[in-house]
Simulated scan of single mutants.
Amino acid sequence: MISGGIAGEHERIDTPQLFSDEMAAALRTAHAWGRKVTAHAGPAAVIAEAVELGLDCVEHGYQLTPEVAELMARHGTALVPTLLVTRCKEFFDELGVPGWMQCRSLGAGPRHLESYAMALDAGVEVLLGSDMPPFWAFEGTNATVRELEFMSDGGLGPAGALHAGTLGPVRWLGADADLGTVEAGKYADLIAMDADPLEATSAFRGVRWVMKAGRVVRDDRSGWERP
């Protein structure tokens, strides 16, 4: 966490959390171990400093600028926008989140969406992450699917959203030798749905069949019985 956020009562989104030498040490150490680093970060200035030091991914990016978005694109720094976290009043009400936090979160929503558009315009790679429990029932689906819908509607489109939730993160994590495509020798992690996700991201609301590592763990087709 290199900046403040929406959940700290006594901090602002633009409150720095680490000094430059601390960020640099964390990044050098992780990279020396062959690991990537992602950081909770909201404001442009803090993000720019971390990107220059080698940050691999930004979580949230509530207050980007076109210049910082272009910097991220040049350095290959990805963005997990978590659009859901600034437009989820139903979730906050369900959890009894205090009014000050709801105000800060939901109030950041318009600027958050503008930042996301700046990232897309600059060619920043965006990846899926909801900042809510991914399985959480929300607005007629779950948090993961709703986040994908927001990402798609915000300018990414259905094909881009599909990539952001599948092959994009796989490649960012360096796991494409085992995941991401349907090939012999890779893990058989597959889903099936009623509609085409390349036509509309809402197709993910109709997932009916799931295979994990070659084993069917969900099958909602009528007449099917688990052995």
Rank of each mutant, 00 (worst) to 15 (best):
G123K: 03
M23C: 11
A164Q: 01
G34W: 01
A161R: 01
F92I: 08
A44H: 12
L53A: 11
S222F: 09
L79V: 07
D14K: 07
R12C: 06
E90N: 07
C57G: 13
E147P: 08
L179M: 08
W224V: 14
G5M: 03
R74C: 00
L95K: 14
W172Y: 11
G206Y: 10
T15C: 03
P110S: 10
I47Q: 08
G214V: 03
P133H: 08
M193N: 04
D189K: 02
E11S: 12
M72G: 05
G123D: 02
V170N: 03
G54F: 12
Q17F: 10
R12M: 11
A177C: 03
L120H: 07
M72W: 10
L120S: 06
S115K: 06
L53W: 07
D196I: 02
M1E: 13
A45W: 13
E94L: 12
V182A: 10
A25N: 11
L55S: 05
R221L: 14
M23I: 13
A119I: 02
A195T: 06
T38A: 15
V85P: 11
A137G: 04
W33Y: 14
V145P: 06
D131L: 06
S105L: 14
T166K: 04
A69Q: 03
V210F: 01
T65D: 04
T15I: 08
L55Y: 03
A213Y: 00
K89G: 09
W33Q: 15
H75W: 05
A78T: 07
T181K: 07
G129Y: 04
L55E: 00
E22S: 10
A192W: 09
G165W: 08
M132I: 13
E49M: 06
F19R: 14
Q63A: 13
D176K: 01
V145T: 15
A175I: 01
G155A: 04
K212F: 02
G129Q: 02
A164L: 06
A44Y: 11
G160T: 02
P81L: 01
G99E: 15
D121N: 12
A45V: 13
F150S: 02
A25P: 00
G129I: 01
P110K: 09
G34R: 05
L53R: 09
R226L: 12
P169Q: 01
K36W: 07
R205C: 03
K36E: 03
A30F: 11
T65M: 08
A48Q: 03
E70W: 00
L83V: 05
A41T: 02
R87C: 13
R221K: 09
G5C: 06
T77M: 07
A26H: 11
D153R: 14
A159Q: 10
L18N: 02
R208F: 12
E225Q: 15
D93I: 11
M101V: 14
G160F: 05
A164F: 07
T141P: 05
L120A: 09
H112C: 05
D178E: 14
H60L: 03
G154V: 04
L71H: 09
C103N: 13
T77D: 09
A117Y: 02
A50G: 09
T15K: 00
R146D: 12
M72Q: 10
E114Q: 15
A108S: 15
E114Y: 09
S115F: 12
F150P: 00
S152H: 06
L128F: 05
P169D: 01
N142E: 10
A32G: 15
F138A: 01
T86D: 12
V124N: 08
L18G: 02
D178L: 13
C57V: 07
L84K: 08
T86M: 04
T166N: 07
T82Q: 13
L156Q: 00
